[in-house]
């Protein structure tokens, strides 16, 4: 079905098949942030959104990043997603230093390696569900029939096989977020980044979307999820707390913190 071997469709739901550390790089994590800082400058004012963040995430991990509003969560995710570059420190994605990449290379990395799920869904309102889902494949250069087949398949996986021709406005919030999960999946990326994916959803839809993330995690995908809800974070394998642009508990980077404080 899929003509491009680089996009072998969804892997078998066997966690063991997913992390394939190369023989030459046995322990290289999929992403590694070393002492990353980010300073926004507007005129004389400088806002230090991140100050010395170090984080590494192994392939197949499911990490929740928690923190209050303005603590730098979105900033961190933009850096992880190659949408922005750090002011200081280094960021290696899949063993490659991202800070040396050009704009067009970053676009390629985003296209092939990363799937985004946003709080605002960010679906194009004039396009049907499957046209939204195929969008990353357009930039990957796939042919139209191949794109449609894969978009429809991705929508089926998130339980929206009967909604492929609906526009975002004709779908519920939970369904829209499932469309954007399908869009994040369609290129079969190594890494899924979600910035408060349930922030705009009611409890039932939240459960739907989280169940999807659980399933993706079981298939061995690497997931980094940003949230400020404890019960959402509890679904992850581990969680890290961020305050004022810094991780507050070094121990948290290794094991789940849990509800006890």
């Amino acid at each position: 079905m899929s003509p491009d071997p680089a996009y072998a469709l969804f892997p078998d739901p066997e966690p063991a098949t997913r992390p394939v550390p190369g023989p030459d790089l046995p322990t290289e994590p999929i992403l590694r942030l070393t002492d990353v800082g980010k300073t926004y400058r507007s005129g004389a004012l400088a806002v230090e959104a991140l100050r010395g963040v170090t984080l590494s995430v192994d392939e197949g991990d499911f990490v929740a990043i928690m923190g209050p509003s303005g603590s730098g969560k979105s900033t961190l995710m933009h850096i992880l997603g190659c949408l922005d570059v750090p002011s200081t420190g280094t960021y290696r994605l899949g063993g490659e230093d991202v800070s040396t990449m050009k704009e067009s290379q970053l676009a390629d990395v985003r296209n092939r390696r990363i799937g985004f799920v946003f709080q605002q869904f960010n679906l194009l309102p004039t396009m049907s569900a499957w046209r939204n889902v195929e969008l990353p494949l357009v930039y990957a250069g796939l042919s139209r029939p191949a794109r449609k087949a894969r978009a429809v398949e991705a929508l089926a996986r998130v339980g929206l096989a009967d909604r492929i021709d609906h526009r975002p406005g004709e779908l519920s919030g939970g369904q829209q977020q499932r469309v954007s999960v399908a869009r994040a999946l369609v290129t079969d990326p190594q890494l899924i980044l979600a910035d408060e994916p349930t922030g705009n959803l009611d409890s039932v839809s939240t459960e739907d979307v989280l169940a999807l993330f659980d399933e993706l995690h079981e298939q061995g995908r690497t997931i980094v999820l940003i949230t400020h809800e404890q019960d959402v974070a509890d679904r992850a394998r581990r969680s890290v707390q961020i305050r004022d642009g810094q991780f507050i508990d070094a121990a948290a980077t290794h094991t789940r913190v849990g509800a006890a404080t």
Binding site: A107, R110, Y139
Partner: peptide, 13 residues
């Protein structure tokens, strides 16, 4: 927003 999204999804400048 559409332009931002397209770029996030892999559109080069």
């Amino acid at each position: 927003r559409e332009i931002g999204l397209r770029k996030a999804l892999g559109a080069t400048p």
